[in-house]
Nucleic acid binder design. Structure first.
Lengths: 142, 142
DNA sequence: GTGTTTTTTGCATCATTGTTGCATTTTAAT
DNA sequence: ATTAAAATGCAACAATGATGCAAAAAACAC
């Protein structure tokens, strides 16, 4: 089980041409364990303070650069990251799914099955990426 | 012109049961002058440093509480505010339009004419609010 | 208008978040 | 096992935001 997951993580890092380090493996484990988005503070808590703040920042930035994770828009100063399930490459990164923020439990989830609609913009605007964040009550809290 | 705008601002503050102060009037003027979203740092710059940082924070929070402005989601730590054009009340606040973030000039605009689509969520989820942020190139930068 | 009460502001202080430079450690490659 | 490259931890710093409290300004009553 855990060994299998570790193997997956190693593969993922290899295919992104990243060295295998404790921090990276641990952070990816945390991503896979949680079914929602995580923010920086979560990693400090969940990892049991074993990693330096700065290392976590740099690790998340590296994962972003490589398209392993993506950011989710928020209306506050928090920065939330979710792991990319599908076809996010290093250079052409798009999230083709909706993000859901539960007002009860505060969790943020990726609704992978829910496609984002096509938005008809006014003349003169060119769209590269569309982010949809729905807030409400999730199925666990209902 | 300017007198007329001032009058509008006073009316707006009165109808929200807020006292008329220099800071509030100035910040609302800046909102009306700019056709996009503003963040805290903008007010410090645009107002010519004449107001205290804390006062600006508190003023924006007050406007949020009263439904005069709303926040726009971002993927970084910045918090962007836009003035509510339409039917945002104190308790039932919804933005029924799309936000556009230009990758060239960095501005964020409200596309008041562009309605947000209805999102079909998975079973068990209840939606209260939907935020759509499109990024790309705006008509000024094209 | 004047005086009083309430609200707002400015300042000092503190907490949190994120960044950078550099020495040390770890990983990868030979 | 040795060496070169990359990642980490630490110290220091900057930016953002919050809170308590005294001074100033606005609103209200007269």
């Amino acid at each position: 089980m855990a060994a299998k997951q570790k193997e997956l993580i190693v593969q993922l890092l290899r295919s992104s041409k990243l060295s295998i380090t404790d921090t990276r493996v641990k952070i990816l484990e945390l991503f896979m364990k949680s079914n929602g988005a995580l923010e920086h503070a979560d990693f400090e808590k969940l990892s049991g303070k074993s990693f330096d703040r700065v290392t976590i920042y740099r690790t998340l930035q590296t994962f972003l650069d490589k398209g392993i994770v993506h950011k989710i828009p928020t209306t506050d100063t928090s920065v939330r990251y979710a792991i990319c399930k599908s076809d996010c490459g290093e250079h052409d990164h798009h999230d083709h799914h909706v993000h859901f923020r539960c007002e009860e439990c505060g969790s943020t989830q990726c609704l992978d099955e829910t496609d984002i609609p096509v938005i008809q913009l006014p003349k003169g605007y060119a769209a590269h990426n569309v982010e949809v964040v729905v807030s409400g009550v999730c199925k666990e809290c209902k």
